[in-house]
Design a protein around this nucleic acid. Structure first.
Lengths: 159, 159
DNA sequence: TATGAAATGCCATAACC
DNA sequence: GGTTATGGCATTTCATA
């Protein structure tokens, strides 16, 4: 299941379109890539079965519903013991406020991306989840002033 | 258009499902949330028209197609002059390798998320895009060893 | 094994109450 | 918001190369 999947140019062009709009009728996609409707639908089904397309989702703009603050946090752990880091990872996975968490190289151990409605909520989060009991030595908070490029996995080039 | 949109409980439950799977038939969603098929479809169309649902996409797993390296970069600029930072922002927006770019508070000015096929490609990127000509004083590279929580905007709580 | 074409069945759309 | 009739789209099956 971890094996790489071989794709031809048709697959790439179909993927490129599905990554932008997965509600596009196959008829339209077919004409754009130069295949029949049937072929496009077959390939899309195969791409999903093969795990190339992981899921199909609606992107919601949370800012349209309620104000929120985006924050990045650089976390340094007290130790590199597996038991401690594993526990921290599990806590980050469970924490609803955590949008992303990466184990990184360098002076710091983890980078977090956190979304909270208020700074008070962030204070609650940091005090409970970034505490010394969680194995955290210290952390550096970087509040997002402006999103220049919103994190967009669909920008990853596939070729 | 920047105004907040008021949603009721039905909208929230429909959104919750569409954020997980936007290909779910309205019939199924309707039964799950306790509405008729028509009502669900009407609400979804309204949510899209109001800009609550921004777009509908297929999520592709790039690792299934080709190996890639994920990197976070902390960037410090030479100056805060608008002309310089604006040019940098435009360069980051244009750079295909840049998945995300945020203007942040603290000692550093920008946080970048970059995806590249090889370290050589990252070297090319950093030499061309993170140069002093771009206004960059220095930058700190944090290579992602493991993705604990993959950046997922759908984790943002809407209430 | 992959394609294109045609018949079936499901789903969204639009116009009603 | 619910119901119904219409149109469109995906699915399936088949023939072909």
């Amino acid at each position: 299941m971890t094996d790489l999947v071989a794709l031809d140019d048709f697959d790439y062009r179909i993927l490129e379109r599905a990554r932008r709009n997965n509600l596009e009728p196959a008829r339209v996609t077919a004409e754009a890539v130069g295949l029949s409707e049937s072929a496009v639908l077959r390939r899309l089904r195969r791409l999903r079965a093969d795990g190339v397309i992981v899921r199909d989702i609606a992107i919601v703009d949370p800012a349209r519903i309620a104000p929120h603050i985006l924050i990045h946090v650089l976390v340094t752990m007290r130790s590199q013991e597996k038991a401690i880091t594993d526990a921290f990872k599990r806590a980050m996975t469970a924490a609803k406020a955590v949008l992303g968490c990466w184990d990184v190289t360098g002076e710091t151990d983890f980078l977090l991306t956190v979304a909270v409605p208020t700074m008070a909520a962030y204070e609650d989060f940091s005090q409970s989840e970034l505490s010394s009991e969680r194995g955290v030595r210290n952390f550096r908070t970087m509040i997002v002033i402006r999103e220049v490029v919103g994190f967009d996995p669909s920008r990853v080039e596939l070729t």
